[in-house]
């Protein structure tokens, strides 16, 4: 829904939640917090300023706090300017990136990790080891990077075949990394070589790539 809002034209998304321990649904706010953390990281990967997403916690009796937070957020977003502009992303690119972000966030990997995160931080993993905020941050960063890149490749291949070099330029990523990822995608049956132009292979989505990757 956060990505949906940005796609619909929002320049920022503010998420208000109950304070820790005060969730009407016991732990929904903690789940939301985890999701917002990873969403911010995916946005950063997409080249979008993560400050456009802000979550604040307050109780339902703290109307004044809400006003304060909303006011601050509005001010900050106004200063930041319209989505994509300070980031230097054009409109088409923005949509591709947001679509990729949305798919990454809805995918299995991120959903599993964010789903388990409350348990990991509150109760510890299977071995009773609790994760620190720092460890979680690193984990989130790695996952966000991998997942977003995969999605972005798939999104870009949707329109037309690309060479690794073309992708690398559009995605502002080292070709070396992309070559490895293309090989993975091929193994999973999501991408294949469409044609070879000169010496350069052009990649396209394979049959599975359109839909199957969760």
């Amino acid at each position: 829904m956060v990505i949906e809002s940005l796609l619909a034209g929002a320049d920022g998304v503010f998420v208000g939640a109950c304070k820790r321990g005060e969730c009407h649904y016991t732990s929904g706010n903690l789940h939301a917090e985890g999701k917002m953390e990873i969403t911010k990281r995916v946005l950063r990967m997409a080249g979008i300023d993560p400050a456009r997403l802000r979550m604040r916690m307050m109780s339902s009796a703290e109307g004044n706090k809400f006003v304060e937070f909303a006011g601050e957020f509005q001010k900050d977003i106004t200063e930041l300017g319209p989505l994509g502009k300070p980031e230097g992303i054009d409109k088409n690119d923005l949509e591709v990136k947001l679509q990729a972000a949305g798919k990454a966030l809805g995918g299995r990997k991120i959903r599993w990790v964010t789903g388990k995160i409350v348990e990991f931080t509150e109760k510890g993993n299977l071995y009773g080891e609790k994760f620190t905020a720092h460890e979680i941050g690193r984990l989130f960063d790695e996952i966000a990077m991998d997942e977003f890149r995969l999605r972005e490749i798939l999104e870009r291949l949707k329109g037309k075949p690309h060479s690794v070099k073309e992708l690398a330029t559009k995605m502002d990523t080292a070709p070396k990394i992309l070559v490895r990822q293309m090989a993975d995608l091929k193994k999973m049956g999501f991408a294949e070589i469409h044609s070879v132009v000169g010496n350069t292979p052009m990649w396209e989505l394979s049959g599975n790539g359109e839909t199957a990757y969760e």
Binding site: E4, S5, Y25, G28, G107, I110, T114, E214
Partner: peptide, 27 residues
């Protein structure tokens, strides 16, 4: 509460009366 719906990567869980379709339309 929607915790399950927001977690299912298969999109198999619909929150009745607060479906993705309804909320997206609203957004």
């Amino acid at each position: 509460c929607g915790t399950c719906g927001a977690t299912c990567y298969r999109g198999a869980i619909t929150m009745k009366h607060y479906s993705d379709e309804q909320l997206t339309a609203q957004i």
